[in-house]
Write a protein that binds this DNA or RNA. Structure first.
Length: 447
RNA sequence: GUGGGCGUAGCUCAGCUGGUAGAGCAUCGCGUUGUGGUCGCGAGGGUCGCGGGUUCAAUCCCCGUCGCUCACCCCA
């Protein structure tokens, strides 16, 4: 069970839960680096104006200040904890542009903070795992494809169960709305974004009221949002909805891009992606591909991995840095998987061998045995006092330590497999545990 | 920020119309006196979230407050 500590929204894990998290972090690192992404870490704190510049999340930002400034008065906050990794990354790129080679691909796995009301799957402090590719001036569309592909691979490697990348293109949606004569595309997107939550009728009403749509236009916009298919070529279905209207350039480009992304994903990670033309994304800096990810059986979580293309991640003078990226909500994922029991660790401690003590004075000799094991990569722990063997075995058993080591008066060694009870002679210089017992294993269980 | 629900042992919870607390699990001990798990017996552990009010008497009723939780909002 993932437990909520005394402070709501700040998840703290037990050792056996942390092992699962570490395994996920290791897995992500391996996959990201296999695809050529470099790791960076940015400071936890940004100037307030850097964070508030992006609007949107203003009230969720935690400000940081000393309790008193030098005059002893309460200090006004100039800094704040970052609420995502994209904004700090943009600042980092601008600041270090001279040292980076573009296109720059980086991954970044860090805690972020948001001051919202916590709920199941929503935290005030949580870990995000981001990958982005950022270009100097321009960035090939091909990067959109690659980012989606790497994340699909990463999610597969995490073995979290079935998931679907829901892919759309802002260009497609906006181009479509314009083609049918709806100019306030932002208002349309906001309304359509609520489709799953409030239903078609109320979205249609909102389109008419706030986006200036006629009933026909509202119907067309809704029909577009209802397109959801694993068939890569969505163009015929979209164009069919236009009626007499002609597709504008933006729509044509969006169709081509979405089709390309879908075709590549379908061939390289079959069954992991579908085109979902209702995906809009709340943040307004997305300009092309947008992606959300639903974890099957955990639909209540919402998206566990989201992001997309933004044509202007950052600017420096006349230079602009377009980017494309995706972000995994690692804490959200982890907490759901731990709660459901789908993932667990085979033991609470790294220790593979517990070296018992027959007499208290045997402690140095026991450490020698442990060191011989450790030198060969076997985690070993020595008893702290020569309690009854029953107690020492029990200690190991409670922690899930698979082997217990005994040395008798003559210096003969035996090792006991605590699960079978089998005890055999062993040499500390050469004995090894079964491979699965060497380190805690991560278990993937049925729900 | 707005609204609902809930705060009793380490955990999960019971405690009737008010009479100052109990169970299961966990922990520890003993049986089994230096080779665990089962079983049996026993023990420890509580400001009943906090403050105030009503009452002879409050875990229980009332008010406030803090915390947790769910929903809205927003998002990973």
């Amino acid at each position: 069970m993932a437990r909520t500590a005394s402070l709501s929204g700040y998840l703290e894990l037990l050792p056996e839960e942390r092992l699962v998290e570490l395994h996920m972090l290791d897995t992500l690192r391996r996959v990201f680096e296999a695809h050529g992404f470099s790791s960076i870490e940015s400071r936890a704190v940004e100037p307030l104006e850097v964070l508030l510049g992006k609007g949107e999340i203003d009230k969720e930002v935690y400000a940081v200040s000393r309790i008193h400034d030098d005059d002893g008065a309460a200090a006004a906050a100039k800094h704040a904890l970052h609420f995502d990794l994209t904004v700090p990354f943009a600042r980092y790129v601008v600041e270090n542009a001279g040292h980076l080679a573009f296109p720059f691909r980086r991954y970044q796995i860090q805690k972020v903070w948001r001051g919202e009301r916590p709920q199941a799957g929503r935290f005030r402090e949580f870990t995000q795992a981001d990958i982005d590719i950022v270009g100097d001036g321009e960035l090939p569309f091909r990067c959109d494809v690659e980012i989606a592909l790497v994340m699909a691979r990463a999610l597969e490697a995490l073995r979290i169960g079935e998931f679907t990348l829901r892919v759309n293109s802002r260009k497609l949606s906006e181009g479509f709305y314009r083609s049918i004569g709806l100019e306030d595309t932002a208002a349309v997107l906001r309304a359509v974004d609520k489709l799953e939550k409030i239903g078609a009728e109320r979205v249609a009403a909102e389109l008419v009221e706030t986006a200036g749509a006629s009933e026909t236009q509202a119907e067309q916009a809704l029909a577009l949002a209802r397109i959801r298919t694993s068939e890569p070529d969505v163009a015929p279905r979209v164009l069919d909805l236009l009626g007499d209207a002609a597709p504008d350039d933006l729509l044509r480009q969006g169709l081509e891009e979405l089709t390309t992304v879908m075709a590549e994903l379908t061939s390289r990670v079959p069954g992991r992606a579908e085109a979902d033309l209702s995906i809009a994304r709340g943040l307004d800096y997305y300009t092309g591909t947008v992606i959300e990810t639903v974890l099957h059986g955990h639909e209540e979580l919402g998206s566990v991995c989201s992001g997309g293309r933004y044509e202007s991640l950052a600017t420096k003078g006349r230079r602009s840095f377009p980017g494309v990226g995706l972000s995994i909500g690692l804490t959200r994922l982890l907490s759901a998987l731990l709660d459901s029991g789908e993932v667990s660790a085979s033991r609470k401690v790294p220790t593979a061998v517990y070296v018992t003590l027959r007499e208290d004075q045997d402690w140095p000799a026991a450490q020698d045995v442990a060191d011989q094991l450790r030198e060969r990569g076997i985690s070993a722990e020595v008893a702290l006092s020569a309690e009854k063997f029953g107690k020492q075995i029990k200690y190991a058993d409670r922690r899930g330590i698979p082997y217990v080591w005994f040395t008798d008066e003559q210096g003969r060694h035996e090792v006991k497999d605590i699960r079978s009870g089998q005890q055999t002679e062993a040499d500390p210089a050469s004995w090894s545990p079964a491979a699965v017992d060497l380190t805690p294993q991560i278990r993937f269980n049925d729900r």
